[in-house]
């Protein structure tokens, strides 16, 4: 598994809910690329225009609250987002991100959230549990993953983890 990722930050508020990540009217859609065209539509209509493959979302606590729609992490994944960094995730969003193999859910402190700015370039190192802020020339720690979560992330998804057992 690649454990180092570099990309640009798109920064958002706390309690970013699944209704703004992908509105209910799109839930009939099963094509991930079509879902990606509407990623974060309810919060930032510019997002899909500016996001680049490998970018990150840095957001306030309780990211992904609301519904169980896996369309939410799928829309973000296929828009190009690699990982979401936040002080806390809503539980189903976290499960979906990991088990579906869509995104790397990274827990940071509130202070780190405050310090990272929109547009910053950062590098995540999952082995060292650090985030290097290249723009600001600073470094922050990230929370280590629980054992099972790390194994599923390494495998790529819950189904792939199962095949490896």
């Amino acid at each position: 598994m690649i454990t180092k990722f570099r990309g640009r930050v798109h920064k958002y508020r706390e309690n970013v809910d699944t209704d703004v990540i992908i509105p209910g009217k799109y839930l009939k859609e099963m094509d991930p690329l079509k879902l990606a065209q509407h990623a974060l539509e309810g919060l930032d209509t510019e997002f899909v225009k500016k996001v680049k493959p490998g970018d990150f979302i840095v957001a306030g606590r309780n990211f992904g609250c609301g519904s169980s729609r896996e369309h939410a992490p799928i829309a973000l994944r296929y828009s190009g987002i690699k990982a979401v960094l936040t002080p806390s995730f809503a539980r189903i969003f976290y499960r979906n991100a990991v088990d579906g193999g869509h995104l790397i859910p990274i827990e940071i402190t509130n202070e780190t959230y405050e310090q990272i700015a929109d547009g910053d370039e950062i590098e995540i190192d999952l082995e060292k549990h650090t985030v290097v802020n290249i723009t600001q020339e600073t470094e922050y720690g990230i929370k280590a993953f629980p054992e099972l979560i790390m194994k599923i992330l390494e495998a790529g998804s819950l189904f792939k983890y199962d095949q490896m057992k």
Binding site: G66, S67, R69, E70, I92, D99, G100, S157, L158, F159
Partner: peptide, 26 residues
């Protein structure tokens, strides 16, 4: 259940929990 409000049924004294569709498929 493949829906976040699966929690509802917990009023009958069971562990009722919502999941996304990958988990549900599992």
């Amino acid at each position: 259940g493949g829906d976040s409000h699966t929690n509802t049924a917990g009023a009958l004294g069971l562990f009722a929990v919502g999941l996304g569709h990958t988990d549900l498929a599992y």
